[in-house]
Nucleic acid binder design. Structure first.
Lengths: 299, 299
DNA sequence: ATATGCGGTGCAAAAAATGCAACGCCCTTG
DNA sequence: CAAGGGCGTTGCATTTTTTGCACCGCATAT
């Protein structure tokens, strides 16, 4: 939208910390960009940037204004969605921040199902840990967040939450594979692979281990759930994952078993949005579908 | 703000129902305005107006967009307030929709008191009945509403409410002036002056009268509370008003006595804002002050 | 029919935004 | 300590956008 062009320039400058860099990113001259911003500052009544040697940085007024821009942008998207809705086109774009566990099965399936009914709706899916996901919502960079064990709940409005037990992942021929559920101590005694501390699964595991005076000693620590899934096939190690990220039928060489509830309480997989925000139609409808799907997918 | 210029034009066209009239109002040519709007519609993807012979009218998409404009505008004002606040200027503008009863004493006093501390803050006060006041909030035309017995409470968030008994107003030498409180039947039996049905006081009176199988028969019905106050001095009639609109010391020829509670329950004087909205600093602070003042002004 | 009002368009003039080159500044680097 | 490179900023000519004016087609009112 043309009338927000100046704002987008301001955002670009804020992002790159330099007018010249931002100018290049936005395909115009530094001088043009500079003057747009100076003119806006004059009209607005305050400078938006601290000019330091070597670049610029947003000052508090600039931060505030950028926040306004994001609200405006998001509200405009909402209106466009509503308009498309009443023209019968049902266009729209849904932006989701989610945990890795949702990537292999759940989200692709949900998105495909939604798009089958509404081909005009497109999606952006970003992988964010539980801290970042909430920032995304607060800056209107995402409409929805689907995360496991979120950290701060300010500005975060829960749409739906489902308990998820932590499952242990192993090769089908692993010695523990025949047990219907596993004890935490069995896992800690054996080589295991774990996500790093930014992830909810790890957080729950650390907490549970500490409670029994033990601690995790992963042979491999990673931020990639995919790596975990594949690694356990090589070393006969144990991995950890929530069931929504697993599919029994996917790979017959891989099995997963829940951890005993008395060792580790189920965590919460939470679908949420920015508190108080009215979502664009497409996002709201998709949230409804996901919410329904989640409620029938407890584990 | 320049980047909202097109929106302001759209609003002007919507208001006047004609491009040519709007063009004149906004001091440009009909052609220029027309093209601005056509270009915006193209960029936005939908027409905003129904073109009828004899003029134009907003279509639903236009309504939606205008709503976005108002939100944007109001949020920008909020940001400007915050910025002014952190530059130490403490500027701002507060827009209030209120009942007539607040005009003579309460609001002037509150505004003066606030401005004594914050001379940079200016005010707009509009008199609106209880229905209109809520519309004002919904369209962001006002920040605060201070009304007696509001009708619909959707989109209306109550900040503070104080019970207000209905008082009877009469000349000091009126036969009933010596009683500490009056009965409704005494009033109905004598000539009385009342506000029309749009006002909360009248609504309460009608309700109370119907409950005892009677009805009001005002010798003068008016929308002006001021007229009522002055009229009772001339005919020895009875008027009705809530105490916040009265001041014992103001005019010694005038006295007021409460109606018996068993005849008429106190109504609610309510300070409210648009549900979910974050007010500009000045408005929020003023609301706080008014809220405190109200809570010590029950009757 | 004729006249009047409406929204919309072609075209030239006016206004605004842009690119280019250069300036002054500060920090880094030889 | 001087040179160099990066930064934001400014003057000026150029390009792009916006505006005003005259005019069109059209529907209603007279």
């Amino acid at each position: 939208m043309r009338h927000l062009y100046t704002f987008s320039l301001i955002e670009a400058v804020a992002r790159s910390g330099s007018m010249r860099k931002a100018a290049e990113d936005m395909n115009l001259t530094a001088s043009a960009l500079n003057r747009r911003i100076r003119r806006f500052e004059e009209e607005f009544g305050t400078e938006l940037f601290e000019r330091l040697p070597g670049g610029v940085r947003l000052n508090p007024a600039g931060e505030l204004l950028l926040q306004h821009y994001r609200l405006t942008q998001s509200d405009l998207a909402k209106v466009q969605g509503q308009v498309a809705d009443l023209t019968g086109e049902r266009r729209g774009h849904v932006r989701i921040a989610c945990s890795q566990a949702l990537l292999p099965y759940f989200l692709p399936q949900q998105i495909a199902r939604y798009r089958a009914e509404h081909p005009g709706v497109t999606f952006t899916v970003n992988v964010r840990d539980r801290t970042q996901a909430e920032e995304e919502l607060a800056t209107y960079a995402s409409d929805l967040a689907l995360v496991f064990e979120p950290v701060y709940l300010v500005d975060f409005e829960v749409i739906q939450h489902v308990p998820q037990r932590v499952h242990v992942l192993m090769a089908a021929d692993h010695p523990l594979a025949h047990k219907p559920e596993l004890r935490l101590r069995d896992c800690l005694d054996r080589p295991h692979v774990a996500p790093n501390a930014r992830y909810g699964v790890r957080h729950l595991l650390d907490f549970a281990a500490r409670r029994v005076g033990r601690q995790l000693n992963p042979v491999v620590e990673t931020e990639s759930f995919e790596l975990i899934r594949h690694y356990v096939l090589h070393e006969h190690a144990l991995g950890f994952q929530i069931p929504i990220g697993l599919d029994a039928s996917a790979d017959s060489r891989l099995v997963h078993r829940p951890l005993a509830i008395r060792d580790l309480q189920p965590g919460s997989l939470i679908l949420g949005q920015m508190r108080g925000r009215t979502l664009p139609v497409a996002s709201a409808k998709f949230a409804l579908q996901v919410s329904a799907a989640l409620s029938t997918a407890e584990a």
